[in-house]
């Protein structure tokens, strides 16, 4: 197992592309194509957090959705924990779900409004892990504990929770499958800053505790810097730069990365750092 982990990456993609064909219509013939992702080659190592940064329309969400099998790549090769993704797909949707899970941007719309939290957590435990009723119940309590929610939240409906609480529940659902990899698609951008910090901290702690790899999709450079080991910058479907986080933020090489960094609004005033750490802030 350990040798295995060293030799293969959690996810590796080679020349991955996704083209959305325009709808064929009776009057105008085929519409124009959109090349959302163009020939991306990228590897997510075990135990690391790889951030993919880009602005809207850069193709970062399409890339993420391909990695969990919600979209099918047009061309290219994708291996998840060493297995070919096409083979996983052929095994059925459950094969993907067991190794890789997804956390969505909007926690409220990713939870079915008509289901209680325990009904939301039940399918992955039953279908992906095959646990019996008693075990499922015990796991649900553990999961609530892991995301720091009270156990009585299980009987409630999603609309009873704030955005941050709902995102914790969505994270619990992803954890339920005990995946090796989680794809986080802008998991904190819909949240208030104070809640955002808490969720980031929770995600970091969970990654260490359960020994997972994260693919962290975001448009927010400051958030990315605080959680990632490596950063890939996407621009119109391509990766323009990929580097260790520290290096990328200190000395960005690509012009677009520099533009992104300089566009982020920041507090210009300098002042003496306080005990909690001084801020020269920027974000979103």
């Amino acid at each position: 197992m350990t040798e295995d982990r060293k030799s293969v990456d959690a996810i590796s993609v080679t020349d991955l592309s996704k083209t959305f064909a325009g709808e064929w219509s009776l009057f105008s013939g085929r519409g124009y194509e959109i090349r959302a992702v163009r020939d991306i080659t990228l590897a997510l190592r075990y135990g690391e957090t790889l951030a993919v940064v880009g602005e809207s329309g850069s193709g970062k969400s399409t890339l993420a959705r391909m990695m969990v099998g919600l979209e099918t790549p047009t061309s290219g090769d994708m291996r998840i924990t060493g297995k070919d993704a096409a083979a996983l797909r052929a095994e059925g949707p459950r094969a993907f779900g067991r190794v890789i899970q997804y956390v969505f941007q909007d926690p409220v719309s990713s939870l079915n409004p008509r289901k209680t939290v325990d009904a939301i957590l039940d399918p992955p435990l039953r279908l992906l892990k095959g646990y019996d009723r008693v075990r499922r119940r015990a796991r649900m309590k553990e999961l609530m504990d892991a995301v720091q929610m009270p156990a009585n939240a299980l009987e409630r409906y999603p609309h009873e929770f704030s955005g941050g609480q709902a995102q914790r529940i969505a994270i619990a659902r992803a954890l339920a499958a005990e995946p090796r990899i989680i794809v986080l698609d802008e998991p904190v951008s819909a949240l208030d800053v104070s809640v955002q910090a808490q969720i980031l901290l929770l995600l970091e702690d969970l990654r260490k505790e359960f020994d997972m790899s994260y693919l962290f999709i975001s448009h927010d450079l400051a958030v990315v810097e605080s959680i990632s080991d490596r950063v890939a910058v996407m621009y119109s479907g391509e990766i323009v730069e990929i580097a260790p986080a520290e290096q990328l933020f200190r000395s960005p090489r690509h012009e677009y990365t520099r533009k992104l960094l300089s566009s982020a609004p920041r507090l210009k005033t300098a002042w003496t750092p306080r005990s909690t750490g001084g801020r020269i802030a920027a974000h979103e």
Binding site: A197, L201, A222, V223, E225, S226, F249, T276, G277, H283
Partner: peptide, 29 residues
Amino acid sequence: CVPVPGQGRGFLDAIRAMPPADIAGGRSA
């Protein structure tokens, strides 16, 4: 709670160091 460029992973350590009741009024997260 706003991460700062250049702060890197130090940001999460700073958040961890904050007393929990102190965060977001201890309510909305």
